[in-house]
């Protein structure tokens, strides 16, 4: 059967447009409600809370989702990495801060590699199951290291300037954190959408067997994606800690779901082969705008999560329904022609 393209405006089916419209809608809606508190500069300032750490984790998650896999252990990886950093720095008495950060990134990489190794070594199991168990494992290790304590007293430039500082740009105060994320995006975009290895990632996610028969080193592709996911999780943990100023083993609980939500909202599919950087960025912006507005109106984390869940389902569901409707209408039209 030929692939179907119904009458539905083509741009609506591009996820990016749908997201852009939603972003604008959200902004103007909340702006009308709270014209003083919900403004663009304030929103920009809030990106440090809602956008950066989750954003980095989502960048990693996107790679895994494109493969058609999933990694639920990212938040735990971030927590373990941050714990390693906090404990090795020991408020200035341990390793120098750069070494602690390096150790943190290595920890993230190692966690990701371990996940990836398990995934390619035990193909009978599913990444979902594997990372469900490493999730408790990583967070458990973080607990064993840190107990109920928290580690903090980080250098001022990290906890203050990076966490809360901003740079004036074109008359706006842009959080430094956000600039870090935005600086990474072009490179990430070029790598994912414009290089051979990015293309191979999509190929492996579209059809793993056929990719292997086409000569791709599928195991290495998977391992790389999971390892990079671990690294991105650690980077996310790095920015999260700079914002909170200290590390507890519970840091970032539930962020894995947010990372998945962002990537899926941005057009990735858990069945693999799809995903876009532009979509991911727009999804991040949308969630930031939405969460910030809801927080202003209700100041309630549960309502926030509720709307994220609703948004996630609707954004996936609505195009499906439109497609089904378009198909039905098309058949009806052909049937009418037949009757004539």
């Amino acid at each position: 059967m030929a692939s179907v393209t119904g009458k539905l405006p083509a741009f609506l089916r591009r996820r990016e447009w749908l997201l852009a419209i939603l972003v604008l809608l959200t902004y103007f809606l909340f702006n009308a409600q709270r014209p003083d508190n919900y403004t663009f500069p304030k929103l920009l300032n809030q990106t440090r809370v809602y956008m950066v750490d989750v954003g980095f984790m989502a960048l990693g998650m996107l790679l895994v989702l494109i493969l058609g896999d999933i990694d639920i252990s990212v938040a735990a990886t971030a927590a373990l990495s941050a714990t390693v950093m906090g404990v090795s720095y020991r408020g200035g008495e341990g390793l120098p801060f750069w070494a602690a950060v390096l150790l943190m990134l290595l920890t993230g990489l190692a966690c990701g590699l371990f996940n990836g190794l398990l995934v390619i070594r035990f193909k009978e199991l599913f990444p979902m199951i594997i990372t469900l168990s490493t999730l408790t494992l990583y967070r458990g290790i973080a607990y064993i290291i840190l107990k109920d304590q928290s580690a903090g007293s980080f250098p001022a430039w990290y906890a203050k300037d990076l966490g809360y500082g901003s740079l004036p740009l074109m008359g706006l105060e842009v959080p430094i954190m956000l600039l870090c994320l935005l600086a990474v995006l072009p490179f990430y975009y070029l790598w994912l959408h414009r290089t051979a290895s990015g293309r191979r990632l999509f190929a492996a996610g579209t059809n793993l067997t056929a990719s292997r028969y086409s000569g791709l080193h599928t195991d290495r592709i998977k391992l790389t994606a999971f390892a990079m996911n671990g690294l991105f999780a650690a980077i996310g943990g790095f920015f999260l800690t700079s914002r909170t100023g200290s590390v507890k083993y519970t840091i970032g609980t539930g962020f894995e779901m947010q990372a998945i939500a962002v990537a899926v909202l941005g057009g990735a599919s858990t069945s693999g082969g799809r995903g876009s950087v532009a979509g991911l960025l727009l999804a991040l912006v949308l969630l930031t705008a939405l969460k910030n507005g809801l927080m202003l109106l209700y100041n309630d984390a549960f309502i926030l999560n509720l709307s994220v869940g609703l948004l996630l389902i609707l954004v996936v569901l609505i195009p499906n329904l439109f497609q089904a409707l378009a198909d039905r209408r098309r058949i009806l039209r052909q049937r009418m022609q037949l009757a004539k």
């Binding site: 293309r199 191979r200 059809n207 990719s211 028969y213 791709l216 082969g273």
Partner: peptide
Amino acid sequence: KQGLLLPWSIRDNVSLPMLD
């Protein structure tokens, strides 16, 4: 199942092994 990436275009399928 083994030969093609069905949703991909002809040119993307053909070029896959030789992307480098």
